[in-house]
């Protein structure tokens, strides 16, 4: 006779079954990772009824789990799907979600480890690995920029109090990216095309967008940009390399003078030009409200 499981054991057993990857036909696997038949596993804690076996009933939850995660993930990475092609995307998505099941109460964070995971597992991206990595970063940055905090920008009084040892914070919604490709243009085009096709045909991602991506020949070009939020809209703001380096240094917690030095490191730009650039950048950043007092946890990145 099998001993009844306590609640924690039962939940752990059921979770393992529910999160077991599906077969290629999107059904529950016949055996679990230990090679045990799932009919046996299910029968241990699920009751059959006159229409469904214990396996059938458990399979409903197994499939729902994957469909829910897959649809949430696909929503967040439509351009990546187009870059790697839908079939490869399916493999990529399932492998990623198996390696990184949700560790958050919200599905919003589902893609948070994708960039690191894909970097470590390039085979899932296929021949356009570098572009896939860039697109992943852009699409994840959009998720972050959409609803990250917007803190009170620096006031004039706070600016007046700044000194040589001061640190500045960068708004949590401002996402800084250094890319190998002009992936921002590409993602922009992809999303516009998808939106147009969705509204015209009432369908989701149009196949023509995917075919267009297949034909696309993007040349590598070092690209720096910020994805940020203003008036509740998302924007791409192209950055120059020194601008990016300065902002990245500020975000890492350096002092203002150190950030300015880091900004021009490795670049040969005449001093007067540097001065003019810095004044222009800081005017823009302050006008956009990007700068604030150094961030407390959990906002500091």
């Amino acid at each position: 006779m099998i001993q009844p499981m306590n609640l924690e054991q039962l939940q752990r057993t059921m979770a393992a079954a529910v999160m077991l990857p599906l077969t290629a036909d999107e059904l529950m696997q016949p055996t679990n990772s230990a090679g045990r038949p799932m009919t046996e596993v299910a029968a241990e804690f699920i009751q059959p009824n006159s229409r469904l076996t214990a396996f059938d009933r458990l399979e409903i939850y197994n499939r729902q789990y994957w469909f829910r995660l897959q649809s949430a993930f696909t929503e967040d990475f439509p351009a990546l799907r187009a870059v790697v092609d839908p079939a490869r995307f399916e493999s990529l998505m399932n492998a990623y979600l198996a390696a990184h099941p949700s560790r958050s109460f919200t599905l919003r964070n589902l893609g948070s480890s994708l960039h690191a995971w894909l970097t470590a597992n390039p085979r899932f991206a296929g021949p356009r690995f570098a572009l896939a990595i860039d697109v992943t970063q852009v699409e994840w940055a959009c998720v972050e920029a959409f609803d990250n905090a917007e803190l009170t920008p620096l006031s004039l009084a706070a600016v007046a109090a700044l000194g040589a040892d001061s640190q500045l914070g960068l708004q949590p919604h401002v996402q800084l990216l250094a890319l190998s490709y002009p992936a921002d243009d590409f993602v922009l085009q992809m999303h516009q095309r998808q939106k147009r096709e969705s509204s015209e045909a009432g369908t989701r991602t149009g196949d023509s967008a995917i075919h267009a991506v297949k034909r696309l020949r993007l040349s590598k070009k070092a690209t720096w940009l910020a994805i940020h939020r203003a008036d509740d809209s998302l924007y791409y703001k192209p950055l120059t390399r020194p601008e990016y380096q300065t902002l990245a240094a500020l975000r890492s917690g350096t002092t203002l003078p150190e950030a300015l030095q880091a900004g021009f490191a490795g670049l040969r730009i005449a001093a007067p030009r540097q001065v003019a650039l810095v004044q222009q950048w800081f005017t823009n950043w302050a006008e956009l409200g990007w700068l604030c007092t150094p961030l407390p946890e959990p906002f500091a990145s």
Partner: peptide
């Protein structure tokens, strides 16, 4: 002196941008 100029430029920019945003 370059560092001082850069710091000064940053602060000038900050003041200008902050004032513009506050208008």
């Amino acid at each position: 002196s370059i560092n001082a100029l850069l710091l000064s430029a940053a602060l000038t920019g900050l003041v200008g941008g902050t004032m513009a945003a506050a208008q």
